[in-house]
Design a binder for these strands. Structure first.
Length: 931
RNA sequence: GGGCGGUUAGCUCAGUGGUAGAGCACUUCGUUCACACCGAAGGGGUCACUGGUUCAAGUCCAGUACCGCCCACCA
């Protein structure tokens, strides 16, 4: 009776803190050589932009379950944690902080700004680490990585340089997505679509010869300052014979041609589209087809700058904000009579994911990465099944996107991130000066001294074609190929950088898109490019657990990079977990005020309750609604576990001696062990299937609905009786096994209880225990069926008592039964009778049937005629309805002939029972009415 | 415009062809006897709709409606 002092309320706070530090001190989170080989997860590194939210808690909880489960199965488990520098996102957080101080990053300068970001990284990283630990995650902190660690930086540069050399990375000038708020380019997948109410302006462009006009429609009239043409579809009859004529561009009053191109849709509006190659990706393509030189401002004018202000010198619009300019230009057009009409219109816009600003498509020179060659093997890896998505519907999502992958704009005009390791210089090459120029900027030194790790390229600006000076150093520049070149040198050697700078080279100020470095996560975290022991042992990882919104941004890129650099898949499974929404189905976000810090819930309910609440809602679904109510339920479950264990410990003597179990004992003993064995299997299978919801439900239903509600209740008397060894052994076995099964989900409370059970050894932790695999011999279908029917009987009799208005706790003298009834003890103790007697009682009584047995409850002078009549009438109605349904089936020859025999047989038995029930109920009703 | 999810009790959700389930909420009863963060009993659902396949459909098929998410260059 050592534990009678335990509180009746489980107190997570003290238990959770205690165990986490003990686990850490005992090195539980580091890989331990096992019998089943390595099992690895490199966790998705959270952004150092603040703190973890509910989605993170779920994500990492799933991984912690997998890690602990696999560890118990004997794997050498490495869960490698870390954090992501998160380029734009972190950059923005710090810029916002500066703004509050009335400063900009330019006031600090690049170096000071980066210092400032590092400071913030320490702060945010510290918060996140504390959150991780509060949640109880068994991750190997000794291997924690950050995507800007020096070694990680080296890995990033290595890939960049290699791809540069292979020609996968190139410099290009094209219309990119410009975020005017953050003043950087962003990739196609970092924007959100949004429809806003706006106007569609119809503007007349008159023919130069005065013969009428062409009407175009636009939502962005301000871009007309950079129009180069108006296009119509060659099939559009309305413009037959007009293509080739000159139009006057209103306001600027310059001539632009009316051209034919496949792009305009004749069905839309007038079928005529103004072409602004510098400010629209479609128009850019048209411009390319027109053969324009994008380096020539005369051919491709630009009218909006990086600050989203209009560039149009000599006009009143110069320097205006883009939206202000739109207003003024429309006024001007109206005044001059060019405005045909204005319609209300839903404008589809691209909104920057990071700043919320309207994206401005802008002609800009950036670094790009060719994706097709990288994507091909990554498609194959998934299509062939080497990488498997769960739920598998995401396979198609992935494949569809990968098959239409577009080149990736890599450069960002930010300061926080991996700086692009390229120096460049504009040179003018002619046939004559080619070798001199090479010598001038140190080319031979480059070739001799630095070739091993570095690479270089010459790109002719007029055609964008690359010339590889290494492959073809003496390729003479001819009259045709002479002209402006950009010389790019890609190097990591600081000495060489200085030499180049001395020769007029300038280092690229841009940094890489943060996902470029994230893509290397599964191997760069293990020390790659060094061939480390970790890399040999733990790569490839086993599973990636992540959110569906980064399948393209991250998952796809890791697969591509892994296959390209490691020549092997980075993980074999991808599990996409559900998005966590608020109770009302809103997105959880700080800006909406709907974000919740998991720590608040942990303070209130405990980490185990928090984890379980999330996990029990997480299967193969795509979203979950989460709130305090759900955690309360889990908290209550923890409390139930606590109290059941407390009760068990109070009943187990210090001299407890276990006995052999299988096949022995009372019905309930065999039943609960059979249920335990099945639960163990279900939990394992559910985890293997990444279905945490199913695993949690099995655990909860078993423990609460079967072990507590039935087994413990039935065992109460026996636990203190003469043969207490057996029920005690069952109780301890169930608790011990349950603690192990539930440990991955609720590590703290299970450890606490597990350690109090008889037989627990010093410094032995559940993580080191074997995952329970109860033998087949424990499964006893007969016991389960019998027990199920006993439970039904008890429920029915209890219901009869309740309906008769008897106090549930009151023990009645006797219950009469007619029919075959074994296990009278169960009935006696659970339905609370002193005796079970055969036959029918003499006096007034009420009767109910279950499992073919009639139960009579003597109620001399106590029967409420009205109540009983109502109860019986209802019962008759229900039985008649069921019987009718049953007969309908049985009278249908199609059914009796075609349905499986056992189904028909079951139906016959059911009908028979119902038939008997109906007549019995009728007889009783008559009896009652005669009372 | 295309694709993917969802629609089951008041709420949140399980349910992979054989007579509809859980938790919460609600009603009634019950606190010396593990737990009121508890126990017992109960009420509550033509499983969104329309067709089809089948002896049998919440479950399979086709379509419709509504909700959510993703992709797409219609100015």
């Amino acid at each position: 009776m050592t534990d009678s002092t335990l509180s009746t309320r489980y107190d997570p706070k003290q238990v959770e803190e205690k165990w986490y530090s003990i686990w850490e001190q005992n090195g539980l989170f580091q890989p331990r050589p096992g019998t089943s080989g390595p099992y690895t997860i490199t966790i998705p590194p959270p952004n150092v932009t603040g703190s973890l939210h509910m989605g993170h808690a779920l994500c990492y909880a799933v991984q912690d379950v997998l890690g602990r489960y696999k560890r118990m199965q004997g794997y050498e488990v490495l869960i490698l944690p870390g954090m992501d520098h998160a380029g734009i996102a972190t950059h923005k957080v710090v810029e916002m902080q500066l703004k509050e101080e009335g400063l900009t990053r330019y006031d600090l300068g690049r170096e000071k700004f980066i210092e400032r970001v590092w400071q913030w990284k320490e702060e945010s990283g510290g918060t996140i680490l504390r959150q991780f630990k509060r949640l109880g995650f068994a991750f190997d902190w000794s291997r924690e990585r950050f995507t800007m660690d020096p070694a990680y930086h080296d890995a990033v540069l290595k890939v960049f340089i290699e791809w540069f050399e292979r020609g996968l990375i190139y410099r290009g000038k094209r219309v990119i997505n410009w975020d005017p708020g953050l003043r950087t380019s962003v990739s196609d997948i970092e924007m959100n679509d949004e429809v806003r109410r706006g106007k569609l302006y119809h503007i007349n462009y008159p023919f130069a010869d005065g013969s009428g006009h062409v009407t175009i429609a636009t939502t962005r009239p301000e871009t007309m300052l950079a129009d180069v043409a108006v296009a119509v579809n060659p099939k559009d009859k309305r413009y037959d014979g007009l293509v080739g004529k000159k139009l006057i561009l209103p306001i600027l009053r310059v001539e632009i041609p009316l051209i034919a191109d496949e792009y305009p849709d004749p069905e839309f509006g007038t079928g005529a589209v103004k072409i602004t190659p510098a400010h629209d990706p479609n128009d850019f393509e048209v411009g390319k087809r027109m053969g324009l030189d994008f380096n020539d401002l005369k051919q491709v004018p630009v009218c909006i700058g990086e600050d989203a202000k209009v560039i149009a010198e000599g006009t009143p619009f110069h320097g205006l904000d883009r939206f202000e300019a739109r207003k003024r230009i429309v006024e001007e057009l109206e005044k001059e009579g060019y405005l045909e009409k204005v319609e209300d219109y839903e404008i589809p816009l691209k909104i920057s994911d990071r700043s919320g600003q309207v994206i401005e498509p802008l002609l800009s020179e950036q670094w790009f990465c060719s994706m097709k060659p990288l994507a091909a093997p990554a498609i194959e890896a998934v299509r062939s099944g080497k990488i498997k998505f769960t739920p598998d519907r995401y396979t198609d999502v992935y494949l569809r996107w990968m098959e239409e992958i577009r080149d990736w704009c890599l450069s960002r005009q930010l300061w926080w991130g991996h700086r692009i390791p390229v120096l460049s210089k504009r040179i003018h090459l002619t046939e004559k000066n080619w070798p001199d120029e090479l010598l001038y900027w140190g080319w031979d030194e480059f070739v001799e001294g630095h070739w091993e790790n570095d690479t270089a390229r010459l790109v002719r600006r007029s055609d964008g074609k690359a010339h590889d000076p290494i492959e073809d150093p003496l390729n003479p520049v001819t009259a045709e190929t002479e002209g402006e070149y950009d010389a790019f040198v890609c190097t990591t050697d600081p000495e060489f950088v200085r030499l180049l700078e001395k020769n007029g080279f300038v280092q690229d100020p841009d940094v890489l898109d943060t996902w470029f470095s994230s893509a290397l996560w599964p191997f760069a975290t293990m020390g790659w490019p060094e061939q480390t022991e970790d890399l040999k042992k733990f790569y490839p990882t086993n599973v990636l657990v992540t959110a569906r919104d980064i399948i393209y941004l991250w998952v796809a890129r890791m697969i591509m990079d892994g296959l390209d650099q490691m020549k092997g898949i980075p993980f074999s499974d991808v599990y996409i977990y559900a998005t966590v929404l608020t109770e009302t189905g809103q997105r959880m976000s700080k800006s909406l005020g709907t974000g919740v810090d998991p720590i608040e819930f942990i303070d209130q309910f405990g980490a185990d309750a928090m984890r379980f609440a999330l996990l029990i809602q997480t299967g193969h679904n795509q979203e979950i609604r989460f709130g305090e109510k759900r955690i309360e339920e889990s908290r209550n479950f923890c409390n139930k576990i606590w109290n059941a264990s407390r009760f068990a410990l109070m009943n187990i003597a210090d001299d407890y001696e276990p006995v052999d179990l299988p096949g022995k004992g009372a019905l309930e003993d065999r039943w609960i062990l059979s249920r335990l064995a099945k639960t163990a299997r279900e939990v394992g299978e559910s985890i293997d299937d990444y279905n945490m919801m199913s695993a949690c439900k099995s655990l909860q239903e078993f423990f609460w609905g079967e072990f507590c509600d039935w087994y413990i209740e039935l065992a109460k008397d026996r636990l203190s009786g003469d043969n207490k060894e057996l029920p005690q052994t069952v109780v301890v076995t169930v608790l011990d096994t349950f603690c192990k099964l539930a440990h991955p989900f609720m590590p703290h409370i299970t450890e606490e209880i597990g350690r109090m059970l008889p037989g627990a050894k010093e410094n032995q932790f559940l993580d080191h225990e074997a995952w329970p695999t109860p033998p087949d011999a424990w499964i006893d279908e007969h016991a389960e069926a019998t027990m199920t029917s006993q439970m039904e009987i008890v429920r029915v009799v209890r219901s009869l008592r309740q309906d008769s208005g008897i106090n549930p706790k009151q023990v009645l003298p006797s219950l009469f039964i007619e029919g075959e009834a074994a296990f009278e003890d169960i009935l006696k103790s659970q339905a609370k009778f002193e005796r079970i007697e055969r036959g029918k009682p003499e006096g007034d009584h009420v009767t109910i049937s279950a499992e073919g047995i009639d139960f009579h409850l003597p109620l001399e002078g106590l029967i409420d005629k009205g109540n009983e009549t109502e109860r019986l009438t209802k019962a008759i109605e229900k039985a008649k309805k069921d019987l009718a349904g049953s007969m309908l089936r049985l009278n249908n020859p199609q059914f009796t002939e075609r349905a499986k025999p056992e189904i028909v047989q079951r139906e016959r038995e059911a009908a028979e029972t119902l038939q008997g029930e109906v007549s019995a109920l009728r007889a009783r009703l008559e009896q009652v009415q005669n009372m």
